[in-house]
C-alpha cells in the first residue's frame, strides 16, 4: 500500500529541483566559506575585493590552530566532559524512564507531568542561580556540575526511554518475575540490552550537547580548564589582540568536523531522537 503512495504527474519537477538546488547552495554555503577561509593566507582573507578561492590552499592555519593555543588540552577537556556527562545521563535517564514506563508508584502521574513541564522550562533561567549556588559550594572550576547534571538525568531523554520501554510487551517481565527476578535485574538484564538503539541515540545526542555547549563552561570553568567550544570562540588573537580570523576558521572546522562525521554515521539515531520527541510531545 505504501509503495503506491504518490503516483503523481511530473509537473513542476524541474522547478522543484532548481529550488532545492538553490537552497542547498545557501544551506551548504557557510560550511564551504569556513573551509575556504581556513585555507587562505591572512592577506588573501582581507584582500579587497574579496576573493572566493585561495591562490593555493594552505594548511598553515590548521597547524597554527593546533599550536597557538593548547588545543590538545582543550580537546581533552571537551572529550572528557562530553563522555562523562553522556554516560551518566544516559544510564540515569534510562533508569528513570524505566520507572515511569514500567512501575507503579504513589504520585506517579503528577510527577510525570512535572517532568514534562520541565522540558518546557527554559534552562537558562536556572543556570545563573545554579552558578551562584555552586560558586558558594566551591564547585566552580571543577567538573562536579557535569557529574550532577548527568546523574540527574535529562527530562528529554527520560521521555525518549519511557516511550521505548512502554512499548515492550509485559510478557517478558512477567516471566522474569515468576522466576523470582527483581526489577533491578529485569532492568539491567532485559530492558537495557533490548534498548541498544535508544541508548546509542541518547549517548550521541547528549555527547553533542556538551561538546557544543558554550554557556556552562564559559560560566563554570576557568580559561585553563575550559572546553574547546570556549577556547575557539575567544582565544585566537593576533599580536595586536585582534581576532585571528583565518586561524579561528581552521579551529572551528576542526571543532565541527567530528560532530558532522558522527551525525552522518549516526543520522538515523539523531533523527529518531528528534522526531520521536517532536511527534509524541
Amino acid at each position: 500500500m505504501t509503495l503506491t503512495r504518490r503516483p503523481r504527474p511530473t509537473a513542476g519537477v524541474t522547478g522543484t529541483y532548481l529550488l532545492l538546488m538553490t537552497l542547498a547552495v545557501v544551506f551548504a554555503g557557510p560550511f564551504a566559506w569556513l573551509v575556504l577561509a581556513a585555507l587562505k593566507t591572512k592577506t588573501e582573507w582581507v584582500a579587497i575585493p574579496a576573493k572566493m578561492l585561495p591562490e593555493t590552499p594552505r594548511w598553515d592555519n590548521f597547524t597554527a590552530a593546533l599550536t597557538e593555543i593548547n588545543f590538545p588540552a582543550y580537546l581533552g577537556n571537551s572529550l572528557f566532559l562530553s563522555f562523562l556527562y553522556a554516560t551518566l545521563v544516559t544510564l540515569s535517564s534510562a533508569a528513570v524512564g524505566f520507572g515511569f514506563a514500567r512501575l507503579r508508584g504513589f504520585g506517579k502521574r503528577p510527577l510525570f507531568v512535572v517532568l514534562l513541564s520541565t522540558m518546557m522550562l527554559p534552562q537558562i533561567l536556572t543556570l545563573i542561580p545554579t552558578y551562584v549556588l555552586f560558586a558558594r559550594a566551591g564547585l566552580v572550576n571543577t567538573y562536579w556540575p557535569w557529574v550532577l547534571w548527568g546523574l540527574a538525568g535529562s527530562p528529554y531523554l527520560v521521555f525518549l526511554f519511557r516511550q521505548f520501554f512502554a512499548a515492550i510487551p509485559t510478557e517478558l517481565e512477567d516471566a522474569a518475575i515468576i522466576d523470582g527476578c527483581g526489577y533491578a535485574r529485569i532492568f539491567l538484564r532485559i530492558f537495557l540490552p533490548l534498548s541498544k538503539p535508544v541508548l546509542l541515540t541518547s549517548f550521541v545526542l547528549s555527547f553533542t550537547w556538551i561538546w557544543g555547549d558554550y554557556i556552562a563552561p564559559a560560566l563554570f570553568l576557568d580559561p585553563d580548564h575550559t572546553t574547546l567550544a570556549v577556547a575557539i570562540s575567544a582565544f585566537y588573537l593576533d599580536p595586536h589582540g585582534n581576532p585571528d580570523d583565518t586561524v579561528q576558521a581552521a579551529a572551528a572546522a576542526l571543532y565541527v568536523v567530528p560532530v558532522l562525521a558522527v551525525f552522518l554515521f549516526a543520522q538515523r539515531y539523531f533523527i529518531r531522537g528528534i522526531v520521536s520527541s517532536g511527534l509524541k510531545g
Binding site: 544551506f27 551548504a28 557557510p30 560550511f31 566559506w33 553533542t208 557544543g212 572551528a252 551525525f263 539523531f270
Partner: peptide, 16 residues
C-alpha cells in the same frame, strides 16, 4: 546538517 552545528561554530561561520 546546519541544525547540528554547535552554536560557537555557527557564530564563527556566520561572522566570516
Amino acid at each position: 546538517l546546519p541544525s547540528v552545528v554547535p552554536v560557537v561554530a555557527m557564530a564563527i561561520m556566520w561572522k566570516l
